[in-house]
């Protein structure tokens, strides 16, 4: 499935946060959206999945939705958004319970996805007993359980400490690159973007506009290969140059209420 973004703008009251975004995400592609804080990255993601109504412009989906897919546009949230009164397996089941198709083999589906995300042992634990990294695994498991056509990831690793983040990123890259699910990955972390994306979309600071779109031509499986380190570093530096000054200015801006 493809995602077409056509002249999308958004304002909160008088405040313009996103202006004239045009972008097409191809089937199987991983697009990372990167930019300074407050540039409207999360707003953009909210509109991509229909959780937020754009002030202007449209988002369209193209192509056929695979039959096995229960929820074409599926989110993974920065704060995990787990139901604290449900165990890990019940949290995953939450995404399936209202689908008659899934109810027939619910236990198998849940067990399968918990296995793929390394959570088998934690099926009966409550979120508060888990570390941040494990909680986000549950968030990812829940998203994978519905066989999404497009994954919309809103800074999925931002709430984690640096070590957990690296560990989860590698694990997760394994699970999800293998399936080549179309993904929009919002982050302010350049390392994640350079590790995971086929294309980088760099936004300007508020109001967010597309500053540059950079393809990364190195295969994702080879990104951890030292032979590619220099080339990846170059991309990293190039993007950092682009957003550095913006980030500095954004940092000095007064916060606004959303």
């Amino acid at each position: 499935m493809q995602l077409h973004v056509e002249s999308l703008s958004h304002r909160y009251g008088d405040l313009l946060v996103l202006e004239d975004i045009n972008l097409t995400v191809q089937e199987g592609e991983v697009v990372a959206i990167i930019g300074p804080s407050g540039c409207g990255k999360s707003t953009l993601l909210g509109m991509l999945g229909g959780l937020l109504k754009p002030s202007a412009g449209v988002v369209k989906i193209g192509g056929r939705v695979p039959e096995s897919c229960l929820n074409p546009l599926t989110y993974v949230f920065q704060d995990f958004a787990l139901l604290p009164w449900r165990t890990v397996e019940e949290n995953v089941a939450f995404a399936l319970e209202h689908h008659a198709v899934a109810r027939k083999n619910m236990a198998e589906r849940v067990a399968d996805v918990l296995c793929r995300t390394g959570l088998e042992q934690f099926a009966r634990t409550y979120p508060k007993q888990l570390s941040g990294g494990m909680r986000q695994r549950v968030g990812i498991a829940r998203a994978l359980a519905v066989n999404p056509a497009v994954l919309l990831m809103d800074e999925p690793l931002s709430a984690l400490d640096a070590q957990t983040r690296d560990l989860l990123m590698e694990d997760f890259a394994d699970v999800w690159l293998r399936q080549s699910i179309t993904t929009v990955y919002v982050t302010h972390n350049l390392d994640e973007a350079v590790r995971l994306a086929d294309r980088l979309v760099v936004l300007t600071r508020r109001p967010g506009r597309i500053r540059r779109i950079l393809p990364i031509d190195i295969a994702k499986e080879g990104r951890t290969d030292p032979a590619n380190a220099v080339a990846l570093r170059q991309i990293y530096d190039e993007v950092w140059q682009l957003i550095r000054d913006e980030a500095k200015d954004a940092d000095q801006e007064l916060a606004y209420a959303q």
Partner: peptide
């Protein structure tokens, strides 16, 4: 709100959101 948004993002029907998210 984030839990409600999450439920909406999985297309959970309104009444289910009320009983499974809002009530608890």
């Amino acid at each position: 709100r984030n839990l409600i948004k999450m439920a909406q993002s999985f297309n959970v029907p309104f009444l289910s959101i009320v009983f499974k998210v809002v009530l608890p």
